[in-house]
Design a protein around this nucleic acid. Sequence first.
DNA 1: CTGAAAGCGCTAACAG
DNA 2: CTGTTAGCGCTTTCAG
Lengths: 352, 352
Amino acid sequence: MRQKPTLKIIAKELDVSVSTVSKALRDSKEISDETKEKVRAFAKLYNYKPNNIALSLKNKKTKTLGVIIPEIVHHFFTTVISGIEDYANSHGYNVIVGLSNESFDKEVINLEMLANGSIDGFIISVAKETLALKDYHHLFETIDQGIPIVMFDRVLDEIICDKIVVDDIATSRKAVQKLIDSGAKKVGIITTEDYVSVGRLRTKGYVEALQFNNINLDENLILKIEDNNKPQDELLHLETQIKNYLKHNEIDAIFAVNELYAITAMKAARELGYSIPQDIQFVGFTDGVLSKHAFPPLTTVSQHGKAMGSQAAKLLINRLESTDETEDENYKTVVVETDIIERETTLNSNES
Amino acid sequence: MRQKPTLKIIAKELDVSVSTVSKALRDSKEISDETKEKVRAFAKLYNYKPNNIALSLKNKKTKTLGVIIPEIVHHFFTTVISGIEDYANSHGYNVIVGLSNESFDKEVINLEMLANGSIDGFIISVAKETLALKDYHHLFETIDQGIPIVMFDRVLDEIICDKIVVDDIATSRKAVQKLIDSGAKKVGIITTEDYVSVGRLRTKGYVEALQFNNINLDENLILKIEDNNKPQDELLHLETQIKNYLKHNEIDAIFAVNELYAITAMKAARELGYSIPQDIQFVGFTDGVLSKHAFPPLTTVSQHGKAMGSQAAKLLINRLESTDETEDENYKTVVVETDIIERETTLNSNES
DNA sequence: CTGAAAGCGCTAACAG
DNA sequence: CTGTTAGCGCTTTCAG
């Protein structure tokens, strides 16, 4: 095992001072070409690379971003990370990932661990539990310490910072409109409880779309999935809730606020003898592997997670590197476009 | 914006020396109870937290693990990460994630970036391109620098280090045996090209299972998917390869070395008029969301990614914290168990 | 019991 | 053109 060379070692070896070596390697004009050459050759030979930690301590910046998400085994978050990585890496930044597992405490711990010098800024989508508790002190504190935060997907009006969102309301309106245009008369929604902001907004879009088409709102057609937070029987729970809902209502189209709800509902519908899309149409939210490979392939609105991720990284890095004091207050929230990807769970408008 | 308190600031405020504050906070017995109390109170009030970077520089360890994987939008890797995170976090370590995107160059860059002091050790699954090129100098060099590596899933015999694997051969044997026991006479395999070690090994298990059952090997039943590395039309490419394969062979069971191949093959089979599992049975490898929600739900062998992740983290952290010189050479490779999760694409043995 | 000093690896202001 | 010095935040001898 060969130990890593340091400036000190090189300096001693070449019988010059540490600062000379440092300057030579950074091509300072204070140093003679001759010395530069000598130092560079030696450095290359011994494969010298500056120590990141020392640089971080010196510069008070680590060139790494902290990403905190509720869950990594989840296609949407995973695409966002890949967008972040992409942008960050190509701009010289690394990415530390912290998982909250939807737990408030873990979110706080992760934030605090990383806030002590490990990262320059955060990209975060808050845990459900945090949303439920409405306790945001950890976020306020890190901003107060001068560490910028970019929120995405699950964002908070209370926190003043850069944000990346999807226009949930407009997108849902669009999705529901699609269903109506394809001939659906009784469209239902499978959504989350209202404390999950994205669920609430998507429900709102659903309601607006109905109003716009002069369709009376039937509260029974809104299924809010109770999240019991016990992964083991969650799926079963989900299935029974959906099956009951389908049995007790006359529905010819369903808008589901995520893939899993959509897929589970399709399965339930199939088991109840419906054929898709003739008897009942489906549109999901968030395009992922499940949608593409479902049977039949699910029409879904794509959130462009990768774009959200790189946008988030871009906003954060810009803020970190901006020396412009006036920009300090100028927080943006960028809305990323969504598309509906038509697959085989919806009818064409003219077929209806 | 309140700036973070440092030892220096506290010391000045309390009119004592920096070292006194440091010692007081670490409960050194050199310090009087009175002073300790005073310092602690002040530190709590100002919410003092030691700066990680300074500690890292001082201690020559960062308490963070570098994880380098080919692809994050992939259920298996994602479960592994979650296992790593879990174990690492509960032992005071953070996790930096680097993605190689199956590219050799990106793998090298990531490794080098992180090796310069950012992390204490690596957990890595190598990129396909690296496997194809057989260029492992970056791995040798980081080990040579004294940075331990734990490899998982795609491991290399040439590299001497801790490894976490699945017994691919035995597992494949088991999977194919299951198919045979369920009455299959002509079982095919959809696998990768041989340079992907896991593909090669799984193919080997397939061959062994046939031999064991005195079934003649028909080379035509082995479909090695060409990976053209162009994501956009990859899927289409995959589909046509598989469809051709199904058309030109008589097959009543397929063992696929990953979920995607299995799902795609099921789709192709359905389109060709087969019914599953009556006409053709399927077993996949690597249990993920796709398998569970496929139509019909796919029988699959579970790799226990989360267990692999925490095992990897455990091995790495043990090695990092072991002061025992004798352990230095004692590299383990742990084999994690696999299970076959029976769902609806296979017949029961007694039904056959 | 407390403080001064050195050092982790690096940069930069300032002398020479 | 090169070297000395100080300092980033912290720990740890070693003196007092």
